[in-house]
Design a protein around this nucleic acid. Structure first.
Lengths: 184, 184
DNA sequence: GTCTATACACAGATAGAC
DNA sequence: GTCTATCTGTGTATAGAC
């Protein structure tokens, strides 16, 4: 039984929700603390800076995607085409379930030109995504084609998320998912 | 001969550069004023608020795209396939020339969840883009297909811009442009 | 580990002189 | 139309009591 009300992990988990809703710069330490039921002072006991909190949030999100979604690409028990279809349907659910689209795309577009702090972890996320798709395509197509198709899936989905959020209409993402299925 | 050093248009033009580089929330009035060679006080003589400046910046950008780029879609003197190729090559030049990718995508992802202020003007921009492409596809394909293809071009390019910025590698955008050419 | 209080910097915006 | 000076709010972060 923990002496602290919230574990560090729970604080990060809750902070992800806030950052995803308001973005990095518009989220302030009071927002994060309040949402966790803490005061600013107490919050600073756990993390030295807002940047550190964000880094942990991105890392936890990236780890979650790798463990629960990207891993499917390497599953040996499922037929490759079925794997792709399953993955694409999970993308759709994931990116429509929570508002705000793709945490990494939002963060990188918001912060990139101002600071380089979150570039590496974001690159790592997209690299892992791409490789997970490549593992599927590569059994049917040569490596260069596989890589091209993987990138095409990702760009199409990320672009569709922008239009989906802008027009508040998930059919944009659905269209991109259906187009991506044809790539196998 | 103007008494003022800078016209309102010139101030907006310069402000676009700053907003594109630092984003909306990270740009402050001092940044805008300094880049225009004015003090904050003088800057506020021209615009009542930061939001108003941004609105003018987005409007001027949207107008520029409509006049110089989207208009090509309606040009009667060029063969449709050549029009599409020309347009796509201009997209590439436009989105790689200035750093920061797509002004509207960046702005909407940054501000959308916090305030609705820039949604309408952004929707209008993407609608104009889509219609300009539809005008090309529609001479060869039925209307629903034309619309689908137009959206596919836009989503692919916007997604590719994200990966281009993230990895500082314009080949992502080039790949999306080449794929889009095949859609005719 | 959590709280209150506060230091310090900077943001958006305004007032009034020139 | 531009300037300096300033108001006011808010942000990140810290200090120190409990």
């Amino acid at each position: 039984m923990p002496l602290q009300k919230l574990t560090k992990e729970e604080i990060i988990y809750k902070s992800i929700t806030v950052f995803r809703q308001k973005g990095y710069y518009r989220t302030n330490m009071s927002d994060l603390a309040r949402y966790c039921g803490l005061t600013k002072g107490a919050f600073y006991h756990h993390f030295p800076s807002k940047e550190a909190v964000m880094r942990h949030c991105l890392q936890m999100t990236s780890d979650w995607f790798k463990e629960h979604i990207f891993s499917i690409g390497y599953n040996k028990d499922i037929d490759d085409q079925q794997k792709l279809i399953a993955l694409l349907d999970i993308y759709y659910k994931t990116f429509t379930k929570e508002e705000g689209g793709c945490f990494f795309a939002n963060t990188i577009l918001e912060t990139m030109q101002v600071e380089d702090t979150f570039r590496d972890i974001s690159k790592d996320f997209f690299k892992a995504w791409e490789q997970s798709l490549e593992a599927i395509f590569t059994t049917k197509y040569p490596q260069t084609i596989s890589k091209d198709k993987s990138i095409q899936v990702i760009t199409q989905i990320e672009g569709a998320i922008i239009l989906m959020l802008l027009n508040q209409d998930s059919s944009y993402l659905d269209r991109a998912i259906q187009e991506s299925k044809k790539l196998y």
